[in-house]
């Protein structure tokens, strides 16, 4: 049965995050406090890497269940978007990512005080990348770059849980049709199933946030519909997790999110018994 391979240090898998850093990402979207699309995606990357690191943390450090690349595309080229010590690197073992954020910010957060109230607490917030918006949108090149990374990984790890490529973008590719390299990525496979391509679309086109839809009928524009069409159908166990998170799912549910939080994909990944409270 596909998508059942163990994810472990002896059988790790890889995640490739593609980050749109083109000029159009400087446009602001949404809410009472408008935020640039570039800030939205860099924040999403920092939270994804945080969630992954915490998920895989044990007493001795973070376990290398995943190797992760963060690839930026904009300013007419494609390359590593890591800052700090990891700058210039592509696939990096998760333990090295956890130990080498570009900086650790301290933020005040309100947390439950255990007696029904909230109390302010200082938490450390790691940052690996800052917002960047500059130049064109070579999404096709970025997808081809991801294809090469994943193809090389599969050659070295043929039995791994299928790698996941997550593309965070406003969808305005200007180096050709991205659907062709997207299909190329989805055609790659390990012994455990086809590589998964997910998309987070950040847009100033308005409309309601949409998470894991099974149709493009409610999407606001052609960019969204193109990205939906490029996205893989979620495997059954991921659909189950999405349903547990409260999202409506069907056999056609895709790994696509429009102007909403994508961090929940980290919870789609099984590395062992989950730490959940009695209910």
């Amino acid at each position: 049965m596909p998508y059942t391979a163990e994810i472990s240090r002896s059988n790790p898998t890889c995640l490739v995050f593609l980050v749109d850093q083109s000029a159009s990402m400087s446009d602001a979207i949404g809410g009472e406090v408008p935020t640039s699309k570039a800030s939205v995606v860099s924040d999403a990357i920092n939270r994804l890497l945080t969630e992954l690191s915490v998920k895989c943390a044990k007493e001795e450090g973070v376990r290398d269940y995943f190797h992760v690349a963060v690839v930026g595309y904009g300013h007419n080229n494609v390359g590593s978007a890591f800052g700090g010590m990891l700058a210039g690197r592509d696939l990096v073992p998760l333990s090295q990512i956890a130990d080498n954020p570009a900086r650790l910010e301290e933020r005040v957060k309100k947390v439950p005080d255990g007696a029904g109230g909230l109390v302010e607490s200082t938490v450390r917030f790691p940052v690996w990348m800052d917002p960047v918006s500059n130049g064109g949108t070579p999404m096709r090149q970025a997808l081809e770059h991801a294809h090469r990374l994943v193809d090389r990984w599969l050659g070295e790890h043929p039995s791994c849980f299928p790698p996941i490529v997550l593309n965070l973008t406003d969808g305005e590719a200007n180096d050709g049709d991205p659907t062709v390299p997207a299909a190329g990525i989805r055609s790659l496979a390990s012994a455990d199933g086809a590589v998964l391509l997910f998309n987070l679309h950040v847009s100033d086109a308005g409309g309601s946030p949409i998470t894991f839809p099974d149709t493009d009928a409610g999407l606001p524009d052609s960019y969204a519909r193109t990205l939906f069409g490029m996205s893989s159908v979620l495997p059954p166990h991921m659909r189950s997790y999405a349903a547990q998170e409260g999202f409506a799912t069907s056999d056609g549910t895709r790994g696509f999110v429009y102007n909403a939080d994508i961090t929940s994909v980290v919870q789609f990944l099984d590395i062992g018994t989950r730490a959940t409270d009695l209910r």
Binding site: E59, V111, P126, T276
Partner: peptide, 14 residues
């Protein structure tokens, strides 16, 4: 204790 351990220590062991 590292930053990535803090959230889990705060949630407790299971």
């Amino acid at each position: 204790i590292q930053w990535y351990e803090e959230p889990k220590l705060n949630r407790g062991a299971y």
